[in-house]
């Protein structure tokens, strides 16, 4: 059939274009990170020679290794706290009947739209006064807050889908309320919680503006901010190879996570947005 084979060809082209679109910049950075120093200027998309010297360099650079530890720790803790608080709120929003629901949801929406630049000045000043400037909590607090709306929206969308009457069914079947919660509800809620956690983690991992303004040393600087402060041999020459290698290092975990959990991430991203 002529019509459908032409259609199939069109779809294939479309899919190919999308794949190239998504992958070219990533492959480009990967290519840069694998080029030996003397070939960084060869402007080729595919390296002529492969070398891991850039990776050796960054893993021997304290600025980067510290930043990596900071990034993992800060993003991880912010995710943990954000999900905990959001899960409590989302449970109430999804299951309990109370006045003020709309108020909380629109408040969360307002925070989601809030421009961080509008408060970095204030936070900068307040953090210096209360001693949070250039510390882990100094970043964890804003990350946690700014991811709360996203987490609340996605979690309450997920929670609304849980067949809660199963909890009662389990109790009728002889489970204690706690067992019913642990054996029935937790496994049902886990995928949603997990998805929200990934989205929150990506946000915190990605942030640059808070990391850049609220830190000044290796103490709490995360990778995105550290990348901007990388300096090469001379002040005017940026260490392209090292930055590319560092970029790949922070990108790979996210890509792996995104690829493994793609279906859930899509569900999470859209559940929050559409139902909100």
């Amino acid at each position: 059939m002529l019509r459908s084979s032409r259609e199939a060809a069109l779809w294939s082209i479309g899919i190919l274009v999308v794949l190239l679109y998504a992958l070219i910049p990533v492959l480009w950075i990967l290519s840069l990170s694998l080029k030996p120093a003397d070939q960084l200027g060869d402007r080729r998309f595919v390296p002529q020679e492969f070398s891991f010297e850039n990776y050796e360099t960054i893993f021997n650079t304290e600025t980067f290794t510290r930043a990596l530890v900071n990034s993992v720790g800060i993003a991880g803790l912010a995710t943990l706290i954000s999900i905990l608080l959001a899960a409590m709120a989302a449970y109430a929003l999804a299951r309990l009947d109370f006045a003020g629901k709309a108020l909380i949801l629109s408040g969360a929406l307002a925070v989601a739209m809030f421009p961080p630049i509008s408060i970095v000045g204030s936070l900068f000043n307040i953090w210096r006064e209360v001693g949070l400037y250039d510390t882990w909590p100094g970043l964890i607090i804003p990350y946690m807050t700014f991811t709360l709306p996203l987490a609340i929206y996605t979690l309450s969308a997920f929670f609304r889908e849980i067949p809660w009457e199963l909890e009662q069914a389990a109790q009728v079947d002889g489970a204690t309320p706690f067992q019913a919660f642990r054996k029935v509800i937790v496994p049902l809620a886990a995928p949603g919680v997990f998805t929200s956690a990934i989205l929150v983690f990506i946000f915190a991992w990605n942030d640059f503006i808070f990391a850049n303004t609220l830190t000044s040393t290796d103490e709490a600087r995360t990778v995105p901010a550290a990348l901007a402060f990388f300096t090469g041999g001379s002040q005017f020459e940026q260490p392209i190879g090292a930055i590319s290698a560092a970029s790949i290092v922070v990108t790979i975990p996210i890509i792996v996570m995104v690829l493994i959990f793609q279906r859930r991430i899509v569900a999470g991203l859209t559940a929050g947005a559409v139902k909100g």
Binding site: V26, S247, T251, V258
Partner: peptide
């Protein structure tokens, strides 16, 4: 699936990294 997976890559990438790239 391939399209969905690939479009999520730009979403997941740190903006600073994309900007450098």
């Amino acid at each position: 699936g391939a399209v969905r997976a690939s479009v999520l890559i730009p979403y997941g990438i740190v903006t600073v990294v994309a900007a450098f790239g």
